[in-house]
């Protein structure tokens, strides 16, 4: 950690970590629900294996345990910024392709987008505490390759939601790790780890 923690800062950080863990847990369950609805509404095969699409952040991390707290937060922040723009693209496409036809799916997508935006803001706040001056916004996020066919967009959406569900698990673990390494912390409850 770059800055020595004053007691109030440490308290604030533990609070942000705990709240972040709960946010991630809630987000994960909502993403799982959305994933089920998405697969059903888009007529996809739930067991289909989907290649990783360009621009979709991958949750699996090599040398995860060697990462510093700041690195964890930076990777999380970059991922959720990407997810924020990916979900916004999906929502835009949903409206373009279906209009008002599938409002429930659109609303569920919008709800998860809101949570991702909130979680992104939460990470920025936490990063401000852990390492002053978070990186500036990285531009509009991954552009949607215009040549994707509708079927590829459906698969891409499936890949985004699956990866986001993985990231929610990883984020909870990252925040717990951050919590452990902050002075005077005791390990926070971990709803995300419950089966």
């Amino acid at each position: 950690m770059a800055a020595a923690d004053s007691p109030s800062a440490a308290l604030r950080r533990r609070d942000l970590c705990s709240r972040g863990i709960r946010l991630a847990g809630k987000m994960r369950s909502d993403v799982i629900d959305l994933l089920d609805a998405y697969v059903e509404r888009q007529g996809l095969d739930a067991s289909a294996s989907v290649a990783v699409f360009e621009g979709v952040p991958v949750a699996a991390a090599e040398h995860w345990d060697e990462q510093t707290g700041t690195q964890r937060l930076l990777e999380n922040l970059s991922a959720y910024r990407a997810f924020r723009s990916l979900l916004a693209q999906m929502l835009e496409e949903q409206r373009e392709q279906l209009g008002e036809a599938d409002a429930p799916l659109g609303q569920a997508l919008a709800a998860v987008l809101l949570q991702v935006s909130a979680f992104t803001y939460h990470l920025e706040e936490l990063l401000q505490l852990v390492s002053p001056g978070p990186p500036s916004e990285e531009g509009p996020g991954p552009p949607l390759p215009s040549h994707l066919s509708l079927f590829e967009r459906k698969l891409r959406g499936l890949g985004v939601l699956r990866e986001l569900a993985q990231w929610a698990v990883r984020s909870a673990r990252d925040l717990r790790q951050l919590n452990k390494s902050s002075p005077g912390s005791s390990s926070a409850p971990s709803p995300a780890e419950s089966p």
Binding site: R41, Q42, G43, L44, D45, A48, S49, A51, Q97, L98, A101, D102, S149, L150, F151, E152, K154, L155
Partner: peptide
Amino acid sequence: SDASGTNVVCILSEYEMDGTV
């Protein structure tokens, strides 16, 4: 078809598929 269309999937291998709607 449903609102999101009917998927036509061409499965080439376990990890490779293509499709249209």
